[in-house]
Design a protein around this nucleic acid. Sequence first.
DNA 1: AAAAAACTTTAGCCATGGCAAAACCTGAAG
DNA 2: CTTCAGGTTTTGCCATGGCTAAAGTTTTTT
Lengths: 148, 148
Amino acid sequence: MTETKADTRPDRRAAAFARIRDAHQTEVAEDYVELIDDLIAERGEARLVDVSAHMGVTHATAAKIIARLKREGLVLNRPYRSIFLTEDGTRMANMARQRHRVVFDFLRAIGIDRETAEADSEGMEHHASDQTLAAMERLTAEILNRRT
Amino acid sequence: MTETKADTRPDRRAAAFARIRDAHQTEVAEDYVELIDDLIAERGEARLVDVSAHMGVTHATAAKIIARLKREGLVLNRPYRSIFLTEDGTRMANMARQRHRVVFDFLRAIGIDRETAEADSEGMEHHASDQTLAAMERLTAEILNRRT
DNA sequence: AAAAAACTTTAGCCATGGCAAAACCTGAAG
DNA sequence: CTTCAGGTTTTGCCATGGCTAAAGTTTTTT
Ligand SMILES: [Mn+2]
Ligand SMILES: [Mn+2]
Ligand SMILES: [Mn+2]
Ligand SMILES: [Mn+2]
């Protein structure tokens, strides 16, 4: 006995992968609410057709995803009308946008071109911990300052 | 007429999202072949039971994924025997490992702690373009040098 | 007010990656 | 040479996010 629970180490790696599967769960939601929020800001309302165009999927796919978001309390919408965010949805959109910006600005600061930075940040944003985001912010400021 | 193809811009964003959906397609394959390669190096063979433990999923899930990889020509295995990589699988493992290292080393260089760097790099590696990887390598070297 | 266009909903299909449970081999111990 | 413990395979189930195609509404044009 005592045993030190010898082999109960599911491996540190397993934990990392679990986190990633988790991130993938929320990733789609984050990108959609962020886009919906943008559309509302830019053109007053978010229509399904615009959401699907911006995400690059068919309207059927977007509809299904929005149904999920509604079920999860992130968006609201009445049939055939445009899409709104709940409080929770708005909160998520703002957090997502901020993280997105941090990563994007960082990539730009280290010399990545606009297009590539847009593509890379869209994916990386969901996998950067708070610690990493903070480091990126610090570095971005540092680099921009050095260019007096 | 002429029309400037006014609204045919599916939006640059759509392209970024398409790339991410693409990355998610290959992501699982990359992580599995990398792990299988590691296991073979470390302990001579890769058993299903170890793969599933390290990935933190049930053996049933791992079996299904390995079946997919086999179908796609990345791994080989005879029933009830251990798992091998094909040439293609080995190639993919090596490229994945290298990208992984670049991202991990970079995170460590900017001061992220080991555990967090492991978790973050496991996700970010799949979304960093060659351009970004190059910049990370450059920055890593620079930072390490400055610490004369 | 009718007709046409545009948009949304719904249905049905597929692939992937989760899980639990059962059936099936293999290799060590006995 | 049996037994049985530990791996492996297989079977079903579920959720998500893709797609096409068909139906239903709303909005715009004529
Ligand atoms: Mn985003
Ligand atoms: Mn994103
Ligand atoms: Mn990896
Ligand atoms: Mn990974």
